[in-house]
Design a protein around this nucleic acid. Structure first.
Lengths: 351, 351
DNA sequence: TTGTAAGCGTTATCAG
DNA sequence: CTGATAACGCTTACAA
């Protein structure tokens, strides 16, 4: 790095340009009431001194950091990574910076992060607290005195919220499978107990209920962490006496594991096992056979969150919390088919 | 959110506690020379007023933001997401916050981000500029007057650098395949032209050179973006008159596509096609057959970067730039096998 | 339109 | 060990 010579301040610029501090500030902030001559003198001086605005001073004085905080569970989850990127883009356009903090599912960290957001003077925050049932976390969220938006959580707080209608998409998908004769349907859920997991299971059960039957509880698999490998679990299901005839792959990175486990046992999709995935990645579309999915428009969730938050931050909206519910949709594809007759009989025998 | 009552300052705390401003500051910063009584009075007052440190004021006065910047191409790339997370952890331990900025491969943004880092008073920065050949970006990096570490770039600047020895791992892997009789080896590279891509190709060519032969240029596939789907490209290769007998899958998300394309054509790994992947994800290990990989210890790169940067920031190290080269290694697994005799003949005919 | 000066909330430097 | 006071670099009234 270069020798660290003292950075030029507005005062230095004013002196060199032969104008006052106020004029420099007006030029920096693009005020109208500045004569072209003054503006040019200031700009010349700024260039000559390689002047940079000191953001801390600006924040201190103007009481706005032009920064928003973004608290997620874990950015290595591609869903969150996408959410962040779109959110960052929207705010960049609006002249804000986004500060990312990963809570890694730890309640204590979530509280710490919220403290930090306050201390650092965030103008607004986006929150996806994983500990949505932790009273201390809820209290900390409620005590926030800055605009906030909560993403896809069942948490009862006085802030704007954006949620996915997970139930509907999964219900549609499960219904379709049931209509195709499937009864032994496995569902692989990943991540900690939280809204997405809960709602997906709810939709799953609702589909069975609508057909007057019950899901097979042994086929409900909860992976403790979203990084956990699903291969062994799926493999075990497939080895059992009564293997599933269809599998919901609802974790972030589990589709590959599921397909790999199916192939490893010499089974075929969809002839032996039907598969439904989540989030509609490119991979699912190009796979042969194409994998049916429950689509989740994470980009839309991100931009809606950004919109709600910006409206609050800019004072364009006040009053009671708003709720946005984003639809999810079943996208049927070749990976789902009728249950093979032999398997149907086998199942009917046991019921 | 709650009603926004004016936040308490150190002055308020001092008044309520009946001590001076200086004493409050000493308590906050955990100085030794404070009597227990004073400390307790201050702490009580802070609690009563729900006092929060104003970070902007602290930064302005102390000339340290206790924040480091992290400029990456795109956090949705899992490799970068992991890098960030480990980096963030290390700095959190040291009492710093990490500010993430995605440059999305845009040179103009990279320059803008560097400006922003300066303006916001970063104490240090980690950079992985995608435009490593862009003179303006290089100039901007060189002009930084804060400690910096560059990650895995071929860029000639006066800063500490951490790099992977991509060449070696790929060379080992390619040599192993060549030794198994493979000649038509495809290599799928993703992302923009940059060090990782360049070096991997270099290692690939080096292995052929060592055996006195040349790679088949038509089998070198460059995917323009790291999000681009590789299925169609691999499918096209496999359909050709002279399909590859082995495939290097060196992009971040391409392994799934490669396996899927192979399976879609009814081919088997490794009997028909050998496969080598990159980065050693869990998925590769549990897949049947297990996928050979060129391992890349991204966590180690992140912690080494953090170490180098912290040493500079804390002034423990001065002087000329340091270079860390991190080994990559070929991990052979079942996905690689001898070329089937029929295919060997086919190739030998054409040479 | 421009200049002047106060003050944002902290830390740092002195005396006491 | 504690208190008073001057910065830090900027914005923002208000006065000229």
């Amino acid at each position: 790095m270069n020798e660290r010579q003292k950075r030029a301040s507005t005062k230095d610029v004013a002196k060199l340009a032969g104008v006052s501090l106020g004029s420099v500030s007006r030029v920096i902030n693009k005020f109208d009431n500045v004569t072209p001559e003054v503006r040019e003198k200031v700009e010349r001086a700024m260039a000559a001194l390689d002047y940079r605005l000191n953001h801390a001073a600006k924040t201190l004085r103007s009481r706005s950091s032009r920064t928003v905080g973004c608290m997620l569970t874990d950015i290595t989850n591609p869903l969150y990574a996408n959410l962040f990127r779109v959110f960052e883009d929207k705010f960049r356009e609006a002249g804000y910076l986004v500060l990312l903090a990963n809570s890694m599912n730890k309640g204590a960290w979530e509280i710490e992060i919220l403290e930090m957001f306050r201390s650092r003077g965030m103008d607004g925050v986006l929150l996806a607290p994983s500990n949505e049932r932790n009273p201390q976390v809820i209290a900390a969220v409620n005590q926030l005195d800055i605009p906030a938006v909560i993403v896809d959580r069942d948490i009862s707080v006085q802030q704007d919220q954006v949620r996915f209608d997970h139930v509907r998409g999964i219900r549609e998908a499960a219904s379709a499978l049931i209509a195709q004769g499937h009864r032994r349907i496995a569902i692989i859920l990943s991540g900690v107990e939280s809204r997405p997991m809960r709602r997906r299971l709810e939709g799953f059960r609702a589909a069975f209920a609508a057909h007057g039957i019950l899901p097979v509880e042994e086929l409900v698999v909860r992976l403790p962490s979203s990084t956990e490998n699903a291969f062994a679990r799926v493999d075990a299901l497939l080895r059992s006496d009564q293997p599933p005839t269809a599998i919901f792959s609802l974790g972030t990175n589990v589709l590959g594991d599921v397909l790999s486990a199916i192939a490893a046992r010499g089974l075929r999709v969809p002839q032996d096992v039907s598969v439904v995935s989540m989030g509609d990645p490119e991979f699912a579309r190009s796979h042969v056979p194409a994998i049916a999915t429950v689509s989740i428009d994470i980009d839309f969730a991100a931009s809606e969150s950004a919109r709600l938050l910006l409206e609050r931050m800019e004072g364009r909206v006040q009053g009671k919390p708003r709720r946005v519910l984003i639809a999810t949709q079943f996208v049927p594809r070749d990976s789902c088919a009728e249950v093979p007759p032999s398997k149907t009989r086998k199942v009917s025998k046991t019921r």
